[in-house]
Design a protein around this nucleic acid. Structure first.
Length: 267
DNA sequence: ATGGTTGAGGTTCAA
């Protein structure tokens, strides 16, 4: 049984519905996890998703900032939202589904970006990011007996050397500082997660999912970062068939600065 | 060291 799951930081779902529809029509993943929907739940454009077969939609929106959503062709159950750091941000949503005889829980995260200065004594946003990552270390891939797990999202950290265009030049840039990259690798290790993008593509190869809006020519400069991730419990590793990073979506009309990343499984 | 761009919701903040 085929299963495909996409994660995409959409940077305003209302503004970008034309390219969301373009993506859903061309790729038709079973489940789409969105981050930075930047709207409240009652402002989410349900109808165009439903018209394309995504009848199961769960939301954790907020006014103006952040916000996560899961749109699915498969029924979603036992959904919940966690307020990491207890600050009232909408940065996590989770649900369960069944496919190919498996029960699977999916987590969709939007980790704080962390501001510019990588020092929590002068930049509270960096402290918030570190605290958020610390709290994520408690999330285990085997938390529910008999239930597999998938964790996706914009984690705003590029953990490996080849997850950024220049490891050396990025070491003091928020998203690739050692305290962040060590922290995220610890979340993976302690939680018993598999980094599926790196299972599919060796750590020796560059891999990016985000390119800044500020570059004159994002594609020519190619100063990307791998900020978006797909992890799973170990049992799903053998079922992974492919990973698709839709680089071309960065060049679409009114693009997000992140591109869709899709994991293709055969369960 | 600075500035480059984008979005939401207001005339600034977060990314």
């Amino acid at each position: 049984m085929a299963l495909s799951i996409t994660t995409w930081n959409i940077n305003s779902v209302r503004l970008r519905m034309p390219i969301v529809e373009q993506f859903l029509k061309s790729h038709s993943p079973d489940i789409l996890c969105l981050q930075e929907i930047k709207c409240q739940n009652d402002q989410f454009p349900l109808e165009p998703f439903q018209a394309l077969g995504y009848e199961h939609i769960i939301l954790h929106g907020q006014k103006g900032y952040h916000g996560v959503a899961i749109a699915s062709r498969l029924p979603l159950t036992e959904d919940y939202r966690t307020d990491y750091c207890g600050v009232g941000d909408s940065r996590h949503i989770s649900a369960r589904f069944q496919h190919g005889g498996k029960h699977i829980r999916i987590h969709n995260f939007y980790v704080p970006a962390g501001g510019n200065e990588p020092d929590r004594t002068v930049n509270p946003k960096f402290g918030h990011k570190l605290d958020f990552v610390e709290e994520m270390k408690a999330l285990r891939a085997d938390a529910e007996p008999g239930v597999s797990a998938i964790l996706v999202g914009d984690l705003n950290i590029a953990p490996l050397e080849n997850d950024v265009w220049s490891h050396k030049q990025m070491l003091k840039i928020v998203s690739h500082t050692p305290i962040e990259t060590d922290g995220l690798l610890e979340v993976i290790r302690k939680g018993g997660w598999l980094d599926l993008m790196r299972q599919h593509t060796p750590a020796s190869e560059k891999l990016y999912t985000w390119w800044s809006y500020r570059a004159k020519d994002w594609s020519a400069a190619d100063r990307g970062r791998r900020l978006d991730h797909i992890w799973s419990s170990p049992d799903l590793g053998a079922h992974l068939k492919d990973i698709g990073i839709l680089r071309e979506a960065r060049g679409w009309t009114q693009p997000s600065d992140h591109v869709p990343v899709t994991a293709y499984f055969d369960l």
